[in-house]
Amino acid sequence: MTGYSKEVINDLVNGTLPWPQTRRIMSAYKDDDRFFKYLAVLQDRVSWSDPILLPVGDHLFICDSAEGRITRCECGHSFGDYRKNWKLKALINVRNTEESLREIYPNSDIPDPSWMEIREFFCPNCAHLHEVEAAAPGYPIVHDFEPDLEGFYRDWLGRPLKEVA
């Protein structure tokens, strides 16, 4: 069975594993112990100790915490209950003028701001840009991902999560 060291998974996740090695991992059978090694790598990366249960973005995780299961930024900032859309607790910057779109697209053609805007969702604590939506004005904010967290741990990983009050 395929398996890699935690160091290799760490480099892979950080994008620093040399390409030939990455390429071999892509072409090989998948390593079935990846998930928990991945969690361990991510847990080492964060400065807080609440256990990460599921990554949902590049620096965004569902974790256990004193306030229950929450979505949390890598910096530690909590976006609240993981079942709610974390974006609603974020900071937003909307680019809906030619001038503000031009800042991101200085040398290209840009959309018509009356048809389309860019919405940047930031962490209020560390200012990390977690997600960008390109949407028509008035389009509801998308709830990107609602994982079946309990079902995943119970049925797919065979390691049911502890009941939470």
Partner: peptide
């Protein structure tokens, strides 16, 4: 047209520019 972005980004990445004129 160039009116909208149709090739989106992910996890904080920006969409590719619109279709060029």
């Amino acid at each position: 047209s160039s009116r909208v972005f149709d090739n989106g980004g992910m996890c904080g990445g920006y969409p590719a520019p619109t279709c060029e004129k």
